[in-house]
């Protein structure tokens, strides 16, 4: 799927660029974007190290285990193939919790840590497991409780009650997360998506 989307984006850019006379912009975008991508990754190093350090403390203190035990009924339903006391459960719990609280720069390190733990359970390296797809689907469906940036933008645009979008956002987010989880569950049964080594 990514193969097709990626190729389509590149080919369409060139075609649209040629038709609309935006080719010079497309050319410039290649260099700029490649540089931005690396800068983004480099910029992540510090904050990534910081949160992984904190997570190590939380783990050594037994906090991660405690948290995952509390949430284990839900997580067991979502990730039936991940053993209850596996470190992946703790990392996924921290990731989802930080996403809900809007701590985006904490959510990514926890999420990547969780992926690394899930990879240890992967019989087919290079191919995603069901747990990984489910976890990524939850992450891509946004579970943030307070959309802080959007509220700030509304406030600066002159909205007298910018926080009034919180409840609508929660409802819309709940629907999108539900659809993400259900589609991951359903797709896992679809033959077309079954991995073949």
């Amino acid at each position: 799927m990514l193969n097709i989307i990626w190729l389509a984006l590149i080919l369409l850019s060139v075609i649209i660029g040629a038709v609309h006379g935006t080719l010079p912009l497309v050319v410039a975008a290649v260099t700029d974007s490649a540089k931005n991508a690396v800068m983004l990754a480099i910029g992540l190093i510090g904050i990534m190290a910081f949160w992984l350090g904190l997570m190590q403390i939380a783990e050594d203190a037994g906090l991660v285990k405690l948290l995952s035990r509390l949430l284990s009924p839900i997580l067991h339903f979502l990730f039936p193939e991940v053993p209850k006391d596996h470190p992946a459960i703790g990392a996924m719990t921290l990731n989802i919790a930080s996403n809900m609280l809007g701590l985006n720069n904490a959510a990514t390190p926890f999420g990547l840590r969780a992926m690394a733990e899930l990879e240890k359970l992967n019989p087919l390296p290079g191919t995603a497991t069901h747990a990984m797809c489910m976890f990524v689907a939850i992450n891509t469906s946004s579970v943030q409780l307070i959309p802080a940036t959007a509220i700030a933008l509304l406030a600066s645009g002159g909205d007298p009650h910018p926080t009034s979008i919180i409840v609508p956002t929660l409802i819309a987010t709940a629907c999108s997360t539900a659809v993400g989880i259900i589609s991951a569950k359903v797709f896992s049964k679809v033959k077309w998506f079954t991995p073949h080594p």
Binding site: D32, V38, L44, M48, L52, G53, A116
Partner: peptide, 30 residues
């Protein structure tokens, strides 16, 4: 724990370049 940060950030570079360049081109083209 913090030691792992560097390794992960470096590991995602190829994937980020792939996505961000393709999207950047598409956006620039209109």
């Amino acid at each position: 724990g913090a030691k792992g940060g560097f390794e992960i950030a470096i590991k995602i570079i190829p994937y980020l370049v792939a996505i961000i360049v393709a999207v950047g081109m598409f956006r620039a083209a209109g």
